[in-house]
Simulated assay, not measured.
Amino acid sequence: MIRVDPVTLAFNGVRLEPLAPHHADGLRAAAADGELWTLRVTSVPAPQETGQYIRTALETSNRCAFAVIDAASGTVIGSTSYHDILPAVDRVEIGYTWYAGSRQRSHVNTSCKLMLLAHAFDTLGCAVVGLRTDNLNLASQAAIERLGAGKDGVIRHSALRRDGSVRDTVMYSILRSEWPAIRTRLHARLNAYGPAC
């Protein structure tokens, strides 16, 4: 049975720190980089909601939230989480993931996924890692599919969006047996970014 405790992870110029109230100003600035809270299909907090976003993350019993930090500058550049943690079946999900606009389409997401997946499979001993996204978030679906995750299906009419509409949720998963090939694929993708990252 897995046990998920707060931990700091670092790799490739990116650090994941347990999310805490002192990250509020940094998260606010990261969200402002691209006005990400205006996107209907994301979980990015509006500037005035950053404190509540952190409180909610910390108060959710089956969630372990991280601030994503640029290791060189110490700047907060986003957030991600383990969530829907099910110790009895050795399952976690990775989600609530977003990055400052200027860090999107960079090495950051690949580096974070490598850290989180490696920790889940190699340290925690997870049997499966799930990922989910809004059915309208085609960019997120494409990114998850590029990871090599299997599409499990769609949960219809499953959650509220920030605008009050109800979304369908697309579910994906990665099994422990699939992790070695996915790890190789992620390292190859990072090599394509070059040594600057």
Rank of each mutant, 00 (worst) to 15 (best):
A192H: 08
R132I: 03
D33S: 12
A29I: 06
T60N: 02
R63L: 06
V4F: 13
R185C: 06
T110L: 07
S61G: 02
P6D: 04
L116V: 05
S177D: 15
P180V: 09
G194P: 08
S111C: 01
I144V: 15
V92R: 08
V44A: 14
Y53V: 00
F11C: 04
D70L: 04
V166M: 07
D5N: 09
V89K: 07
A159H: 11
G78V: 01
I174V: 14
R156A: 01
T42P: 11
V7D: 02
A143M: 06
R185E: 04
D84C: 04
N62V: 03
P18K: 09
G34T: 03
S102T: 10
A29C: 07
L138P: 03
D134C: 11
T38W: 04
A29M: 09
V76W: 02
I174Y: 07
P45D: 01
W37D: 11
A118H: 12
L138G: 12
D168L: 07
D168P: 05
W98P: 01
I69E: 00
A159M: 12
G148R: 12
Q48C: 00
D70A: 09
S177Y: 04
V44C: 11
R40S: 14
E49M: 02
A142C: 10
W37V: 05
F121Q: 04
R63E: 03
T97N: 04
E17L: 07
Q104L: 14
A88M: 12
T50W: 00
Y99L: 15
L186N: 13
I85V: 12
H23G: 01
W179F: 11
L27M: 03
R55W: 00
R176Q: 15
D84H: 11
W37H: 15
D5K: 06
L131D: 03
T75Y: 00
V89H: 15
Y96C: 03
R183D: 05
H22S: 08
T133A: 14
D70V: 00
R105L: 08
S177L: 06
G130L: 15
G148P: 13
T133P: 12
I54F: 00
P21Q: 01
M171H: 15
Q48T: 03
L9Y: 01
S81F: 00
A120R: 03
S102I: 04
D163Y: 06
T133Y: 10
S61E: 08
V14C: 10
A196H: 12
V170I: 15
Q104F: 09
D5H: 04
T133F: 08
D152P: 14
V4H: 11
L175W: 04
A100Y: 02
L27W: 01
R161H: 14
P18I: 12
I174D: 04
S165H: 13
D168E: 06
R183K: 15
P180L: 08
R162S: 13
R162V: 11
S61P: 04
A46D: 03
S43N: 08
D163C: 14
D152Y: 14
D5G: 03
M115D: 05
L175G: 07
L9M: 05
T8K: 11
C112I: 07
L124P: 01
L186M: 15
N12R: 09
Q52H: 03
S140A: 15
V76F: 00
A72K: 07
G74V: 01
L190H: 15
W98I: 03
V166H: 01
D134T: 12
R91M: 14
T75V: 05
H187R: 13
D90V: 05
R55S: 05
E178I: 07
A118I: 01
N12G: 07
